[in-house]
């Protein structure tokens, strides 16, 4: 039996395995129905009432506000939280001990969260359209969809870095709970960042979703007043910060793994 070393993991296979596991765990646990199916309905209705009557493009504001509200939790929060669950289940040790770098496991989960986040976004869209009785006036529906997906990916990039914190310390959930509202408002998920005090803007620009959301609003709402530099610099900023986050994640995961092996706290929860 011995001596037959496996033919080696591949990043793609491990990522898919992790995505599949996330899907199976999602299907096995009814509590996920609340954030993924029920919350988007509530967010959509609240947002519709909140923005109703605010100009010609209020439906777009409503969809973006509620859509981001349901998606950011799924994509960003879910990515980190899944690692916290690994600590709780005691599965972090065997997963780290496997030959696959843990980063691939996180990527699989993030991809699943992107898919389920999109589902939430779609539910919000349908709820708002049903409440209004008509679809939103979008100048370029295709650009809207592409940019919507792009925002998800920028959220996912932040989610990967957050997951590293969950590996690093069992207190990551507490830190994330404290910071989640500030992050949600500060990155412009609900309303444009330019409406916030100026001093918050430089902090907000550290996060990729801030740039991507501003670009999405520029593309979807004619006359939108966001950051003064406009659409394309927003796109460039989003790509740049997302790349920086992914590079950071690659480096951070290696260091974090080393750190937890030094500390010996992988089984703490």
């Amino acid at each position: 039996m011995s001596g037959a070393v496996a033919d080696g993991y591949t990043g793609r296979r491990s990522t898919y395995a992790s995505l599949r596991l996330a899907f199976l765990l999602f299907m096995a646990d009814p509590q996920w129905l609340i954030p993924s199916m029920i919350a988007p309905v509530i967010f959509g209705l609240v947002s519709f009432e909140l923005f109703r009557g605010y100009g010609h493009y209020y439906l777009t504001y409503a969809i973006l506000g509620a859509g981001m509200m349901s998606m950011w939790g799924q994509t960003l929060y879910g990515s980190g939280w899944a690692t916290g669950q690994d600590r709780e289940f005691g599965t972090l040790e065997p997963t780290i001990q496997a030959p696959t770098p843990y980063l691939y496991v996180v990527l699989g989960r993030v991809l699943w969260n992107v898919v389920s986040g999109l589902l939430g976004g779609l539910i919000v869209y349908l709820v708002v359209v049903a409440a209004a009785g008509s679809p939103p006036a979008l100048p370029d529906p295709l650009a809207f969809v592409v940019l919507f997906l792009f925002v998800m990916l920028t959220l996912a990039a932040v989610g990967v870095v957050f997951a590293a914190f969950y590996v690093y310390t069992r207190y990551a959930g507490f830190i994330q709970n404290v910071g989640e509202f500030a992050f949600y408002v500060g990155t412009g998920c609900m309303f444009p960042v330019v409406l916030l005090p100026f001093w918050t803007n430089p902090i907000a620009l550290v996060f990729p979703p801030t740039w991507a959301l501003d670009a999405l609003r520029y593309a979807s709402i004619p006359g939108y007043v966001g950051f003064s530099w406009g659409f394309w610099p927003d796109i460039a900023g989003a790509i740049g910060t997302t790349a920086a986050y992914l590079l950071l994640a690659g480096s951070v995961f290696h260091r974090v793994e080393r750190h937890v092996l030094e500390e010996g706290n992988l089984d703490h929860y």
């Binding site: 496996a6 993991y9 395995a17 992790s18 496997a98 696959t100 496991v105």
Partner: peptide, 11 residues
């Protein structure tokens, strides 16, 4: 199945 994939057991 999950751990077989992480350990690279031939598909």
């Amino acid at each position: 199945r999950y751990f077989a994939d992480l350990y690279g057991v031939p598909l």
